[in-house]
Amino acid sequence: MWTLQDAKNRFSAVVDAALSGTPQEVTRRGKPAVVVLSTQEYRRLIADARGQRPAFANHLLSFPAAEIPRGKTKPRDVSF
Rank of each mutant, 00 (worst) to 15 (best):
M1K: 04
W2P: 01
W2K: 01
W2V: 02
Q5V: 14
D6L: 12
A7D: 00
K8G: 10
K8D: 15
K8Q: 15
R10G: 08
F11T: 01
F11P: 00
S12M: 10
A13C: 03
A13Y: 04
A13T: 07
V14W: 06
D16W: 01
D16M: 09
D16V: 00
A17H: 06
A17G: 03
A18T: 02
L19G: 09
G21P: 11
G21D: 05
T22L: 03
P23E: 02
Q24A: 02
Q24T: 00
Q24K: 02
E25L: 14
V26S: 00
V26Q: 06
V26E: 00
R28M: 13
R29G: 08
K31M: 09
K31F: 09
K31G: 05
A33W: 14
V35D: 03
V36T: 10
V36A: 11
V36M: 12
L37K: 08
L37Q: 08
S38W: 08
S38Q: 06
T39M: 06
T39K: 07
Q40F: 08
E41C: 01
R43M: 09
R43G: 04
A49D: 07
G51W: 09
Q52L: 15
R53W: 05
A55H: 06
A57N: 13
N58K: 13
N58G: 15
H59E: 14
L60H: 05
L61K: 15
S62N: 10
A66S: 13
E67T: 13
E67Y: 11
E67S: 14
I68L: 12
I68D: 08
P69T: 00
P69D: 00
P69A: 03
R70P: 03
K72I: 09
K72T: 11
K72H: 11
K72M: 07
T73S: 14
K74V: 04
K74A: 01
P75A: 05
R76H: 10
V78S: 12
V78F: 15
V78N: 12
F80D: 07
